[in-house]
């Protein structure tokens, strides 16, 4: 270890510069802080992303549930059965109107169950049919009577009546 003799002026020159040190330390602090913030944001986003993904999964499941319900209600099996319960009969006689020439093609004839070509009720299997339209002549009649009365039945035979509308189809 050696000891040197220096003048005061030289000593002052040799003293480390306060500002340089401060800038250096502040620089490091800023960089570290920036990194910290960046990391926090990224991590936060990762958690946010995860929660959004979970939400997406839930919503996808929800969409699937609703899609299956719509599928089932829209299936021809359900429509045939529902129409049949309402007493509807397919009319095989087709009558077409030609608007341009004011012409009627075919003879209009009332539909009757006796001359219907095919049984109205569904005969075609569908194991995927879960939700079915729950209306019949009776329920439609009761819907008219119980207007503005909100009825809720147990889910098994569930039927929610909305004001003055055809009964909404229940879920399962």
């Amino acid at each position: 270890m050696a000891v040197y003799m220096v003048s005061q002026a030289q000593a002052r020159q040799l003293r480390p510069k306060m500002t340089a040190g401060l800038i250096f330390v502040a620089g490091i602090a800023v960089v570290l802080l920036g990194q910290l913030v960046l990391n926090m944001i990224l991590t936060q986003d990762a958690y946010h992303l995860r929660s959004l993904k979970l939400e997406k999964r839930d919503l996808t499941t929800q969409v699937q549930i609703l899609q299956e319900e719509v599928d089932s209600l829209a299936s021809p099996q359900n429509l045939a059965d529902a129409a049949n319960r309402l007493g509807m009969v397919a009319n095989p006689a087709s009558v077409l109107l030609d608007i341009e020439n004011d012409k009627v093609f075919g003879k209009p004839r009332p539909a009757s169950a006796a001359n219907a070509a095919v049984a109205s009720a569904n005969l075609v299997a569908n194991a995927a049919m879960g939700t079915v339209s729950d209306f019949s002549e009776a329920t439609v009649a009761s819907a008219e009577v119980s207007e503005s009365v909100e009825t809720e039945k147990p889910a098994a035979s569930g039927l929610v009546l909305e004001q003055g509308l055809i009964p909404a189809s229940p879920t399962r």
């Binding site: 299956e68 599928d71 089932s72 829209a74 299936s75 021809p76 099996q77 075609v124 299997a125 569908n126 194991a127 995927a128 049919m129």
Partner: peptide
């Protein structure tokens, strides 16, 4: 696999 219209 789901077949919404069943046997159709």
């Amino acid at each position: 696999r789901l077949y919404p219209n069943g046997a159709v």
